[in-house]
Design a protein around this nucleic acid. Sequence first.
DNA 1: GAGAATATAGTCAAATTTGGTCAAAACTGT
DNA 2: ACAGTTTTGACCAAATTTGACTATATTCTC
Lengths: 155, 155
Amino acid sequence: MSISDIIEEYLKNILHENEKKMIEIKRSEIADQFECVPSQINYVINTRFTMERGYIIESKRGGGGYIRIFRIEHQDEFELIDEIIQMIQPKISQQAAIDVLERLEEKEVISLREKAIIFSGIEREALAVMLPARDELRARILTSILTTLKYINKA
Amino acid sequence: MSISDIIEEYLKNILHENEKKMIEIKRSEIADQFECVPSQINYVINTRFTMERGYIIESKRGGGGYIRIFRIEHQDEFELIDEIIQMIQPKISQQAAIDVLERLEEKEVISLREKAIIFSGIEREALAVMLPARDELRARILTSILTTLKYINKA
DNA sequence: GAGAATATAGTCAAATTTGGTCAAAACTGT
DNA sequence: ACAGTTTTGACCAAATTTGACTATATTCTC
């Protein structure tokens, strides 16, 4: 486990315990705590607390500055899926797609098996076209699947 | 016995004792341990821990990088799926794909819901490329999904 | 209130730390 | 000797770590 992984875990623990919607941190404090440079916190946030993974970031510089991490909440599955469909237009990378599928599984919109099936349908090797067309094709396929998912019932 | 054989045996011992489903290794550590070049580990994995032999590999580079080896068993319907994969090379029409999915559902290889998901991933509108490329793309996507299906268990 | 000092956070690219690929060389069995 | 397999190493790709430089907000001083 890298330091980034550890910081990610630490932040998620705070966030997910007590069903918190938001946490506010001071970048330099976290950096001190984990003995890393402050910009490492930005790295963790940029790679692990992305929209695709269901987070929104807000921050302020200067005295009393902060970084806030919000968990994106939804009324229901329908709304969650719609939001993701919007997010992936008009293209989506493989990594972002993985994040999206991961999130859908966490939220129990899809099963582990369905996640594996969908992933194998949109992975690089299956699509076999060059960028940027590949990311657009992936977005279309995923959109089509998500649209179906909106209306289909779980087993 | 070659070094490759020894490394293979070593990894399989760890994996099979205690019924472990997965092991995680660091490529360079194993290479050090057996005094070989790191790429030899890739050779062992590529020749001995293939899907056909019942393993799935996952890896990550960079700090905190790893190689994970998962053990899998294949499904009873392995042969049926293989036969279909052969059949759909190198291209498949939408109608033929529907027939295939129908057959898979009848044989209970996939559920009704999975059939719907897969179909929406390979339908004309989702792929949005002209014939004959479309039928080839559909074949690749479906092949990728079917290959996954050969090894993942039903819920 | 203007300007300086201080306190934050952000960006970006270089350095580092992993693992991956590929083909040439070496080895093995027949 | 040939074919197939294994070993090796040069080069590549990806993820992480680090730090110099930048941007912005607040507080202090006059």
